[in-house]
Design a protein around this nucleic acid. Structure first.
Length: 254
DNA sequence: CCCTGATTCGC
DNA sequence: GCGAATCAGG
């Protein structure tokens, strides 16, 4: 690959954007991380916080001054003829991994459509696991105190544990709008609105996990059918029937 | 080990 | 100009 104007431009953009050399190389394709770094420097792009330059002002270490190593691959370093029995460098093959071979795609950003906010206005007086909340933030570092396990294997938390002050979402890498094709016609988290039943179908994390998607029973987060599952009239003690099957067949047993 | 960016230097 | 090899810090 050569450095076309376009590729140089991409390099500049991504470099200034703070992407690592590896990411840039992967994005461009056909070049190594070193190539990216080398090019960036040649272009005069300002260096970014390097792990190796901390404080040190004199990188002028004795590199070539005192007899260091050849540093360069010997290639045809024909020394004296008498020493012709030197070990041949058959291992000279760079063994280039040829990273990201097929990647001519300029990665057309999949225009993240203005997600309808997923209507996360959580009117949480209902007791059913509100999957939308849990699923939306699966990457909480500190393991929250688990109060109980909700339907579908959701981990319920105590009221005080709910709000983790971690809104600063780091810049996301480009991600397809749909996790997979098999869910293309299903109701995903992004499809949820106030008027769409958000009863989970399947288990979160599974490739085909989606939501009911029916019109909601006005005033409720679920359709009529699922409202019937979510809300049970409280019967006097002793007259209670055995609990109905939980959604998705109950908590997962691992 | 992995990662990172910087630097060197044969090509 | 290019980039693999190497260095060196995290």
């Amino acid at each position: 690959m050569s450095w076309t104007d376009e590729r140089i431009d991409q390099l500049k953009t991504m470099w200034e954007k703070g992407l690592t050399a590896s990411q840039i190389a992967e994005e461009l394709g056909g070049v190594s991380r070193n190539a990216v770094i080398g090019k960036a420097h040649r272009l005069g792009l300002k260096s970014r916080p390097s792990p190796v330059k901390a404080g040190e002002a004199k990188p002028k270490v004795a590199k070539k001054a005192d007899a260091p190593k050849p540093a360069r691959k010997p290639e045809a370093e024909v020394e004296s003829e008498s020493d012709a029995d030197a070990p041949p460098f058959k291992a000279d093959a760079p063994a280039k991994p040829l990273r990201a071979a097929p990647a001519p795609t300029p990665a057309p950003q999949p225009a993240p459509r203005p997600v309808e906010a997923a209507a996360v206005a959580d009117d949480d007086d209902n007791d059913v696991a509100d999957s939308a909340d849990v699923v939306a933030a699966p990457e909480l570092k500190p393991q929250p105190r688990i109060v109980s396990v909700g339907p579908g294997g959701f981990l319920r938390q105590g009221p005080g544990d709910q709000q983790a002050p971690i809104p600063p979402a780091p810049p996301r890498r480009l991600v397809p709008a749909r996790p997979s094709a098999e869910i293309a016609d299903k109701t995903t988290l992004l499809d949820l609105t106030d008027r769409i039943c958000r009863w989970p179908m399947g288990h979160p994390g599974e490739p085909d996990f989606h939501f009911c998607g029916q019109q909601v029973n006005p005033g409720f987060p679920y359709c009529v059918e699922h409202c019937g599952r979510a809300y049970q009239a409280q019967l006097p003690r002793g007259t209670r029937r055995p609990p109905p099957p939980m959604p998705f067949g109950g908590p997962r047993v691992r």
